[in-house]
């Protein structure tokens, strides 16, 4: 029997609990298991993206294909939603807001748009929110784990897919499986999505031998982790910058394997050889049979 404390239960809350009250009540009768995103746009209809496509919430609390008669979002709703997401403390999330998102409890990332201040260091008058459901899928990386971890030899692995195909979920499970095999894994969780740490406790199971550096820049975090936690594997989400590549190279030079994800539809065309050369294994994902479908596993 697995015992989950109230705190952990709260940490694993769904994004529906983070919606403004007026909108939340329309979701009470809905089954949200299949939901991937909820989009709120000031003046627009409440939109739900699920495995079966894009739909709207009707005033009767049902999913509908038509925008007509759908529940609309007011600027006040957006303001209330931001208040809930930031725990009435906008300043506490200002670094995230500056980068266009807020990571809420449960590891759900809420993308946002509005008006960037003249200094470019804050977003005001927020007009749109996109709640992305973070999910833990135990066993998502079953097939890959064996290929990545072979007789104590861990291959640096790059997970590639378009947005919304389950990269982070896949990476999370890969970390858990490798960590449970006794490998020291250090996670640099720049957006707080991998571990969803809340009050110092990760909401997702990342294995028995995982250390998490939360809300820290990837480049800096990787250096710090290698220096201080002596990991065998460093895991990061959504790489792409030149700086990230040089940090991954530095990790490789230190004898540390790297698990990373990157956005790309076709890794052979979209990712430079310079980056792929840093990895020994590339896993390409799609959502052909649902998010996390492994299309390709290639040793580079």
């Amino acid at each position: 029997m697995m015992i989950v404390s109230a705190d952990v239960q709260q940490m694993r809350s769904t994004p529906v609990e983070l919606l403004p009250l007026k909108i939340r009540r329309y979701f009470y009768a809905l089954d949200t298991d299949d939901f991937r995103e909820i989009r709120l746009r000031a003046g627009g209809a409440v939109c739900v993206c699920s495995g079966s496509g894009k739909r709207y919430i009707s005033k009767y609390g049902k999913l509908t294909e038509s925008v007509k008669g759908a529940v609309t979002v007011s600027p006040n709703d957006i303001e209330e939603a931001v208040d809930i997401l930031t725990l009435s403390s906008l300043y506490s999330a200002q670094d995230e807001i500056k980068n266009g998102f807020i990571t809420a409890r449960g590891g759900h990332r809420v993308g946002l748009c509005g008006r960037m201040t003249s200094g470019g260091d804050f977003v005001t008058d927020i007009t749109g929110l996109n709640y992305r459901f973070a999910r833990e899928v135990i066993g998502a990386a079953d097939m890959a784990a064996e290929a990545v971890f072979n007789n104590g030899n861990i291959k640096s692995t790059l997970i590639v897919s378009s947005p919304g195909c389950g990269k982070t979920t896949f990476l999370r499970d890969l970390i858990r499986q490798i960590s449970d095999k006794g490998v020291n894994v250090s996670v640099v969780d720049e957006r707080g999505e991998i571990g969803a740490v809340h009050n110092g406790m990760p909401a997702f199971d990342l294995g028995a031998n995982t250390d998490i550096f939360d809300m820290c820049g990837k480049t800096e975090g990787m250096k710090l982790m290698i220096r201080s936690m002596s990991p065998q594997v460093v895991a990061v989400d959504e790489i792409g910058d030149e700086e990230d590549i040089s940090a991954i190279r530095a990790a490789a030079r230190s004898g540390v394997s790297v698990f990373a994800t990157i956005h790309a539809s076709d890794w052979r065309k979209d990712i430079g050889k310079e980056l792929t050369a840093c990895f020994k294994c590339v896993i390409s994902l799609s959502d052909r049979h649902g998010p996390g479908t492994v299309e390709e596993l290639v040793y580079v």
Partner: peptide, 11 residues
Amino acid sequence: EISLKLTPLEK
């Protein structure tokens, strides 16, 4: 509390 730790107000 706010300036050093960015502690949310409730806490």
